[in-house]
């Protein structure tokens, strides 16, 4: 049996509190498997978001022992180590109930930048697209899970900070505009609550389940904003 301490809250009369559950988990089971077992066998009212079960959709982000993780991508055996596992919702985002957060705040930050959904595929070494196809397209790596925003210490202090995901998206657009206006995106990145608010805590990159590396993107776009600003200052284009 593995012990879980799960954050519970309800809109209305239920004060936020923790509830303990003992769950029998199979070998290889994930934290999401355990949460669904709790909902199935102990408490059908447990509210938890999930969809794809394989770290592609980004809906099941939670904090496990204080660390932002995708529940579907976190094996119980890797985090249990004989102690109680604490599961809480993401922070810096509004809680719907229990472990479910409303992604509206996260998406509202992304919206002015726009998500660069498609780009040239990263083919395996040596792979060539078939005749007639210039290049493959594929989805951008960001799965919009919100882990980076939850882990960001600046977002915790400044609710207006645009956050790592939006700045990583901005950097993608600057690198590969695909017809987008780079100037507008750079202007967004140079606003007071944007790229310059980052304090290089690197937590976004540490928790990103999709290897987007927002912190690296952030440092790149800051450099680009600085160069752009200097050029404008000295009248060079």
């Amino acid at each position: 049996m593995t012990s879980f301490r799960v954050y519970r809250s309800r809109r209305g009369d239920l004060e936020p509190h923790f509830e303990d559950f003992e769950v029998e988990v199979q070998a290889g089971a994930t934290v999401l498997d355990a949460l669904l077992a709790i909902r199935r066998e102990m408490d059908p009212s447990l509210v938890v978001r999930h969809s794809c079960m394989h770290a592609s959709c980004g809906t099941c982000g939670v904090r496990v022992d204080g660390r932002e993780r995708l529940a579907c991508d976190t094996r119980v055996a890797d985090v249990a180590r004989g102690k109680t596992i604490r599961v809480e919702p993401l922070v810096n985002q509004r809680v719907v109930a229990d472990l479910a957060t409303d992604m509206l705040d996260f998406q509202a930050r992304l919206e002015p930048v726009g998500l660069p959904l498609l780009r040239t595929a990263e083919s395996e070494a040596g792979a060539e697209p078939p005749d007639g196809i210039k290049s493959y397209v594929r989805f951008e790596s960001c799965i919009e899970c919100g882990l980076c925003l939850s882990a960001c210490p600046v977002a915790h202090l400044d609710a207006d900070f645009i956050g790592p995901a939006a700045l990583a998206a901005a950097e993608r657009i600057v690198e590969e505009p695909r017809g987008r206006d780079v100037g507008t995106v750079l202007a967004l990145a140079s606003e007071p609550d944007s790229a310059w608010r980052c304090r290089d805590a690197m937590q976004c990159t540490a928790v990103c389940p999709s290897a987007v590396e927002p912190a690296t993107a952030l440092s790149r776009i800051r450099r680009r904003v600085a160069v752009d600003g200097a050029r404008r200052l000295f009248g060079r284009r």
Binding site: V48, R49, H50, S51, C52, M53, C57, T59
Partner: peptide, 14 residues
């Protein structure tokens, strides 16, 4: 009952 697309929909191979 749960989140939108939390049944078979989100879980297929795409």
């Amino acid at each position: 009952r749960g989140e939108i697309t939390s049944g078979s929909t989100g879980r297929h191979h795409g």
